[in-house]
């Protein structure tokens, strides 16, 4: 199944791209699992690794790591927000 993944701010800079279309490997069914899968690519992707301060949204709504990811979803990863 395909999902659209977006990166913002310092994560976008570390990873070197604003986003990608991705076919999820078997066994990746939650936001947390997707994050770990991407972090395992190494290099800039390690900015997504566990312990780092990373927030996520699915279909433009902030969610926790246990949130399911389904085909067609838009998943975003970003640092804690600093607007206002």
């Amino acid at each position: 199944m395909n999902v659209k993944v977006l990166y913002f701010a310092s994560l976008r800079e570390a990873i070197g791209q604003p986003g990608e279309e991705l076919e999820l490997p078997a066994g990746v069914a939650t936001v947390g699992a997707l994050r770990a899968h991407l972090a395992a690519r190494g290099n800039g992707w390690q900015a997504l690794a566990g312990g780092r301060n990373v927030r996520a949204a699915v279909n433009q709504r902030m969610v926790g790591a246990d949130e399911p990811v389904a085909a067609g979803d838009e998943v975003a990863f970003f640092p804690p927000v600093t607007g206002g």
């Binding site: 913002f8 701010a9 310092s10 949204a57 902030m62 975003a76 970003f78 640092p79 804690p80 927000v81 600093t82 607007g83 206002g84």
Partner: peptide
């Protein structure tokens, strides 16, 4: 807004 709106400085 400070903690929930997706802006980054």
């Amino acid at each position: 807004l400070k903690t929930r709106a997706p802006f980054w400085k």
